[in-house]
Amino acid sequence: MIKFPLKEGKKWDAHEKVKFKIASLKATVQIPAGMFSSCIKVTSRAGVVYYYAPGAGIVKQRSQVRRNNRASESERCPLWESALKYLTKLLICLMLVEDTMYQWDLIFTMTDK
């Protein structure tokens, strides 16, 4: 989604209704996974702000929508969400392994008698 070469103030169109701008090349972003510096901040005319961290990709996405004279804001941390999904799957696998090992231990204990 980012157009090269990277330059603050650079604007481009993804298609006729979606327009982007590089607002900063040195943004600092704090998310639950930690602090990221030297992020690229990309804004869109639709009210979405993306923060790209070097080596990590999109670490934060903030949306500001205005409808019927009411503003609403939402925020996502794709990197943190991915990490949580991965850790959850890892924890489930570890629990299954531990349960399987416990069952094998029971089997061997019963056969030793």
Rank of each mutant, 00 (worst) to 15 (best):
L79D: 02
Q30E: 15
A14Y: 00
M110E: 11
I107P: 02
I58H: 12
N68V: 00
Q61T: 13
M35K: 15
Y50M: 03
S63Q: 15
P32R: 11
I40H: 09
K85V: 07
N68Y: 05
S63D: 08
I58G: 11
G57S: 11
S72I: 13
C77Y: 12
V29A: 07
S44P: 00
R70E: 14
Q61E: 15
P32W: 08
I31S: 05
K11I: 14
K85I: 03
D13V: 01
I2G: 10
K85R: 15
R67G: 03
K7R: 07
T28H: 01
L25A: 03
I22A: 05
W80I: 07
Q61F: 06
N69M: 09
T88I: 04
K41P: 01
F20S: 02
C93N: 11
Y52P: 02
M1I: 15
N68D: 03
G34W: 03
Q61R: 11
N69A: 01
D99R: 07
A33N: 07
V18S: 06
K41N: 13
L90Q: 07
L79V: 09
E81H: 14
T28G: 02
S72D: 08
P78W: 06
I92G: 05
P5E: 13
S74H: 07
S74Y: 13
D99G: 01
L94G: 10
S74W: 11
L106H: 12
I58M: 10
G55K: 03
I2L: 09
W104E: 03
K85W: 02
P54V: 12
S37E: 15
L106E: 15
S72Q: 14
A14M: 00
M95N: 10
Y50Q: 01
K113G: 01
T111S: 14
K113C: 06
Y102M: 07
Q103I: 00
N68M: 00
I31T: 15
Y50I: 03
Y51K: 06
I2N: 09
M35V: 09
K26H: 13
D99M: 09
